[in-house]
């Protein structure tokens, strides 16, 4: 009877297995494509722009967009397109590296706090809470006041701001996974804590962190722009999206293109990251929601 059952099962599985495929919604595809486009554009900035973003051209001060300068020129006559492309480069680099650094520190902290609990958890969680209660921008500004402005410092500040958020997500997710019976089973089969954490808990708990990191990357980009807008992030003459917003603010009525294009770049990047995060959420569910 059992062999019969196996045959029947094999047939059912053979039929159903190939039909299981992940179909991501259109919005995710749009998000991924948009982000890929932005990153490619940032990487290929020197090839695409055709102008030096820092070259001042007095004859083209606040020049309207034309064939040679499709996004127009800014208050110093610099090409807005090349500045947007190069600015995007810096902004994406700061956003991604800061979130990457935060994630790399947050994951082990969250794992340890969530899995071992007790005083270790209290120590890690309380320390992170202290970071969390400080207003984000104030924290960044204080750090910059001590160390001095620059994109590296901005990235570091952003990493510190997002570290507790990511660690907290990792901790919660670890708590949930640690209670699963397969983790209990692994423990009672004699597996070491290191083995359980690395092969069961971390792979199953990391999903929400990746989703969160993707969404935070968009916010990090915004935060970098805000810091640069305030003159605390990327320093001139290096182009940055936030800095360009600051430049364009005074000439908004005469030369709106100076403001619009960097603003648009920021908006697109944030939307792309959040669509990506949404798609990752669906893709990273190993159980397959629909089935």
């Amino acid at each position: 009877m059992i062999s019969q059952s196996i045959t029947a099962t094999a047939i059912v599985l053979a039929k159903s297995a190939p039909r299981r495929r992940h179909r991501l919604p259109v919005t995710t595809t749009v998000g991924v494509a948009l982000l890929a486009l932005l990153i490619l554009a940032a990487i290929a900035a020197p090839l695409l722009s055709g102008h030096n973003p820092e070259t001042v051209e007095t004859a083209r001060v606040m020049g309207a967009p034309n064939a040679l300068h499709p996004f127009g020129s800014d208050v110093l006559g610099r090409d807005v397109l090349s500045r947007v492309l190069f600015g995007l480069r810096v902004s994406l680099l700061v956003a991604l590296s800061s979130v990457a650094v935060a994630t790399l520190i947050a994951v082990p902290l969250g794992l340890i706090a969530g899995y071992f609990g007790g005083w270790l958890d209290s120590l890690i969680s309380r320390s992170l809470d202290m970071l969390l209660v400080l207003p984000a921008l104030l924290l960044a500004i204080t750090l910059i006041a001590i160390v001095g402005p620059g994109s590296t410092v901005a990235a570091l500040a952003i990493a510190i701001i997002y570290l507790p958020i990511l660690a907290r997500v990792m901790r919660t997710s670890t708590l949930v996974v640690s209670r699963q019976e397969y983790v209990l089973g692994s423990r009672s089969r004699g597996a070491s804590a290191w083995r359980i954490l690395s092969s069961h808990v971390a792979p199953n708990a990391i999903g929400p962190v990746i989703v969160q990191a993707s969404v935070l990357s968009g916010f990090a980009l915004q935060l970098e722009a805000a810091l640069s807008f305030l003159g605390l992030g990327t320093q001139p003459p290096t182009p940055s999206l936030g800095g360009m917003l600051a430049d364009g603010r005074d000439v908004l009525t005469q030369a709106p293109w100076v403001e619009i294009y960097p603003g648009l770049a920021i908006a697109l990047a944030v939307v792309a990251f959040s669509l990506l995060g949404d798609g990752l959420r669906r893709a990273l569910d190993p159980t397959g929601v629909a089935s």
Partner: peptide
């Protein structure tokens, strides 16, 4: 007593 096989798809 058991029922052999699986519920059909």
């Amino acid at each position: 007593a058991v029922i052999p096989g699986q519920v059909p798809d």
